[in-house]
């Protein structure tokens, strides 16, 4: 065995890669091909035929434009909410928490240890009309006597925000933690106020974390359907709900497949636009 490796050292990386890459090729890449194949079929379950049915794509987009728009809107709102919640917390952990850092990092990942569906269902308890949150908001007249929070856009966006929060917080932490405190001292020595030091030093240096966190939050959020299904009504239906229902309930595989492709393409376009904005801002800044 050992001498075999010695004689074929060039082969070693390929032998190491073979099983894992084969798995990814067969169960990730080839399925994407099948998805494309299915998306161009026509017919009714179980008799689908491959007919280059390009109209599946145009139909998918025109018929479900509303759900696409909503998915991107909700994912965008949740991403912004995650950033606003996570940045101060992570900043505080990186610069002020001292020896407690690791404990607070554990707090950030702790929600991941509760089954996704169960932690989403917990928001049913929290936001329930009989619960203390709604009761308080009604008492201070933010909500009317018959208004609630559950089964609203707010509930769905709040659920998405909560569920994908660690995807924003962890990359932010990595970028903030790497900032050399001496740079901030230097800024202070050069008579910057702490606001200036933050805007001129900390924020630009944490930009890679913001970019990574935004991508890691936005992509899964746009494809999510659990929050809309559990915390929303049909008025909050996202594209993930439509794909899931087409696959498992109405058994309309070609439409479901083309919707999946459009979702992937739309996310890709959103990423390119985002990269463009981030890139051009870096150029001007």
């Amino acid at each position: 065995m050992g001498s075999f490796f010695h004689q074929h050292q060039r082969l070693t990386p390929y032998l190491l890669l073979l099983p894992g890459i084969a798995w990814l090729a067969i169960f990730f890449l080839i399925p994407l091909g099948f998805l494309g194949y299915q998306s161009l079929q026509s017919g009714i379950y179980p008799n689908f035929e491959f007919t280059w049915e390009v109209s599946n794509f145009t139909d998918a987009f025109t018929e479900y434009r509303e759900q696409f728009f909503r998915s991107f809107l909700y994912a965008g709102l949740a991403t912004i909410a995650c950033l606003l919640l996570a940045y101060p917390l992570v900043y505080w952990i990186a610069f002020k928490a001292g020896a407690w850092r690791n404990l607070f990092l554990l707090f950030i990942v702790a929600p991941f240890f509760v089954t996704y569906l169960v932690r989403t269902l917990a928001w049913l308890n929290i936001l329930a009309s009989e619960g203390p949150v709604v009761g308080f908001l009604r008492d201070i007249h933010v909500l009317g006597a018959n208004e609630g929070l559950l089964y609203t856009t707010f509930a769905v966006v709040a659920g998405i925000t909560y569920n994908f929060f660690p995807f924003m917080a962890l990359p932010l932490y990595v970028s903030l933690e790497q900032i050399d405190p001496r740079l901030l001292e230097a800024a202070k020595d050069l008579y910057s106020s702490s606001t200036q030091a933050f805007l001129r030093v900390t924020l630009p240096l944490s930009a890679p974390g913001i970019v990574a966190g935004t991508l890691l939050t936005f992509i899964p959020a746009a494809g999510d359907f659990i929050n809309a299904a559990l915390l929303g009504t049909p008025k909050q239906t996202m594209i993930g709900n439509v794909i899931q229902a087409k696959f498992l309930e109405s058994l309309d595989y070609p439409t479901a497949a083309s919707l999946s492709f459009v979702l992937m393409g739309a996310i890709l376009v959103a990423l390119l636009v985002y990269a463009r904005i981030v890139g051009s801002e870096r150029l001007t800044g």
Binding site: D224, F225, I243, L263, M264
Partner: peptide
Amino acid sequence: PEIVLGAS
């Protein structure tokens, strides 16, 4: 997105 992984 997970839904695309699962669907394909």
